[in-house]
Structures are given as C-alpha cells and as structure tokens.
C-alpha cells in the first residue's frame, strides 16, 4: 500500500449527522425573540465543528439543526457558533 493523501470525508452526509443550516441575521433575531433568549444562552457549536465546515460560519452565527426526534419526529434545534 502506497502512502496516500488522506481522503476528505464528507461528514455532512453521515447518518448520524442531521442537517445544519446557518441562519441569516433576520432569522436569528426571530428565533431569539420567539424563545425569549439572548444568543449567549443558546447551546454552542464550535466553529471548526466538522458538520458546519461548508457553512463558513463565524462566531456569533446561529446554526439551525434539523434533528430527528423519537418523540416529536422533527425537532429543530439551535446552536450558537463559538
């Protein structure tokens, strides 16, 4: 076996990884208003998290995560990028 270049893995497509989406500033404001929280209070996601690699997210952005839930079928979740 030759030493080969590490293959880039498309983590985003993995079965364990739900869809991640970067919210626009407006959407972010809306979300914070509906839940009556500040973005500091949101759960966090690291800016170098493999699942948001392609989203070009910077600290302060809010990521919407389309989780599948056993109890509610779909459960949107929000994380602030740090």
């Amino acid at each position: 076996m030759k030493k080969k270049q590490p293959v880039k893995i498309e983590t985003v497509k993995h079965v364990l990884v739900p869809k991640h989406l970067k919210l626009t500033e407006e959407e972010k404001g809306e979300i914070l208003k509906t839940y009556n929280v500040s973005s500091v209070q949101l759960p966090k996601i690291l800016k170098n998290d493999p699942a948001i690699k392609g989203l070009k997210a910077i600290p302060g952005d809010v990521i919407k995560i389309f989780r599948k839930s056993k109890t509610a079928k779909h459960a949107p979740f929000y994380r602030e990028v740090i």
């Binding site: 497509k13 364990l16 990884v17 991640h20 998290d49 493999p50 699942a51 994380r79």
Partner: peptide
C-alpha cells in the same frame, strides 16, 4: 475511514470524543 471500501457515511464508533472530532457535536 481512510481505508478503501469503508462506507464513510455509516461507519460509527462508540467513542464519544472520536465521533465528535470526526463527525461533529450533533453526531
């Protein structure tokens, strides 16, 4: 995951830290 023939879309580990590192916090 770098090994030929391994399905990188379904292969999973029971190690939390490795999963977080490779697939992210949600995984």
């Amino acid at each position: 995951l770098q090994v030929d023939g391994v399905d990188t879309m379904r292969t999973r580990s029971n190690d939390l830290y490795q999963t977080a590192k490779v697939y992210g916090i949600e995984a």
